[in-house]
């Protein structure tokens, strides 16, 4: 692809970079315990926690870096961090 003049770019290209590969711990969401408060989505620095049709939440593992903020902040303790590989 030819370079853009002036080192400019249109939106959407960051998503090529799948930061899920950075993850060592994976958040496991337990929808049955979810109170649908949405705090997990709000505090996610990646913006990769997605609301489901049921109103509960799932992480987008393509981008989730496994920081654990969602698990830490979940008032219902419905998210658990588990090691990716043992």
């Amino acid at each position: 692809m030819p370079l853009t003049i002036g080192c400019a770019a249109r939106p959407g290209k960051a998503r090529r970079n799948l930061t899920g590969s950075w993850r060592v711990f994976r958040p496991v969401f337990r929808p049955e315990e979810c109170t649908k408060c949405g705090l997990c989505a709000t505090v996610c620095p990646e913006g990769c926690v997605i609301e489901t049709e049921e109103g509960t939440f799932i992480p987008d593992y393509d981008y989730c870096k496994g920081c654990g903020l969602c698990a830490e902040e979940c008032p219902a303790k419905a998210i658990e961090m588990v090691q990716e590989e043992k």
Binding site: L18, P45, G47, Y63
Partner: peptide
Amino acid sequence: QVEGKCELFEAGHRACAGCGPAL
């Protein structure tokens, strides 16, 4: 409001995991 699918600041950025500024 939660808008998981139309973030204006998109996933894929290279901030450290747990980055306050990214949030």
